[in-house]
Amino acid sequence: KYLVLALYDYQEKSPREVTMKKGDILTLLNSTNKDWWKVEVNGRQGFVPAAYVKYL
């Protein structure tokens, strides 16, 4: 498993997404889509914009 760092705040806009705050450390679950990565944060799984996170 990889960890990624939230570069920006992101507010979920659909039930498939998750909210994150700048500085959050997220567990990367799937990065096959170049635009949306599946992550786990605070016990929830969902998608965030790939451009908003970077590998640690």
Rank of each mutant, 00 (worst) to 15 (best):
K1V: 13
K1T: 14
K1G: 12
K1P: 15
Y2W: 14
Y2P: 14
L3R: 09
L3Q: 12
L3E: 08
L3D: 06
V4L: 15
V4F: 08
V4P: 01
V4H: 04
L5V: 15
L5Q: 12
L5E: 15
L5T: 10
A6Q: 01
A6N: 01
A6S: 06
A6W: 04
L7S: 04
Y8D: 09
D9R: 01
D9T: 05
D9N: 07
D9S: 08
D9C: 04
D9F: 03
D9V: 02
Y10H: 05
Q11T: 15
E12S: 15
E12C: 10
E12I: 06
K13M: 13
K13C: 10
S14P: 05
S14T: 14
P15M: 08
P15T: 11
E17F: 06
E17C: 06
E17M: 05
E17Q: 11
V18D: 00
V18N: 04
V18I: 15
T19R: 05
T19F: 04
T19M: 04
T19A: 07
M20I: 15
M20Q: 02
M20V: 11
M20A: 02
M20F: 10
M20K: 00
K22C: 07
G23K: 02
G23P: 00
G23N: 07
G23I: 01
G23L: 02
D24E: 11
D24C: 06
D24H: 05
D24V: 04
D24S: 07
I25D: 01
I25Y: 07
I25K: 05
I25V: 12
L26R: 00
L26N: 00
L26C: 11
T27E: 11
L28D: 00
L28I: 07
L28T: 02
L29W: 05
N30V: 08
N30P: 04
S31K: 12
S31G: 11
S31T: 13
S31L: 07
S31N: 15
T32C: 14
T32V: 11
N33M: 09
K34F: 08
K34G: 09
K34L: 10
K34H: 11
D35E: 12
D35I: 12
D35P: 03
D35T: 13
D35W: 12
D35Y: 14
W37F: 09
W37L: 08
K38R: 12
K38M: 15
K38C: 13
K38N: 07
K38V: 13
V39L: 03
V39A: 01
V39G: 00
V39M: 01
E40F: 06
E40Y: 06
E40C: 11
E40A: 10
V41A: 11
V41W: 06
V41F: 14
V41M: 12
V41I: 15
V41D: 03
V41S: 12
N42D: 13
N42P: 05
N42K: 11
N42Y: 08
N42I: 04
N42A: 11
G43D: 08
G43A: 05
G43R: 05
R44D: 04
R44I: 09
R44N: 07
R44T: 08
R44Q: 09
Q45A: 13
Q45H: 08
Q45W: 08
G46P: 00
G46H: 02
G46T: 02
G46C: 02
V48Q: 00
V48H: 00
P49K: 04
P49G: 02
P49N: 03
A50P: 05
A51K: 14
A51W: 08
A51C: 12
A51F: 09
A51I: 11
A51V: 11
Y52M: 14
Y52G: 09
Y52F: 14
Y52R: 07
V53A: 02
K54A: 15
K54C: 15
K54D: 13
K54F: 09
Y55F: 15
Y55S: 13
Y55A: 14
Y55R: 13
Y55E: 14
Y55N: 10
Y55Q: 14
Y55D: 11
L56N: 05
L56H: 09
L56P: 06
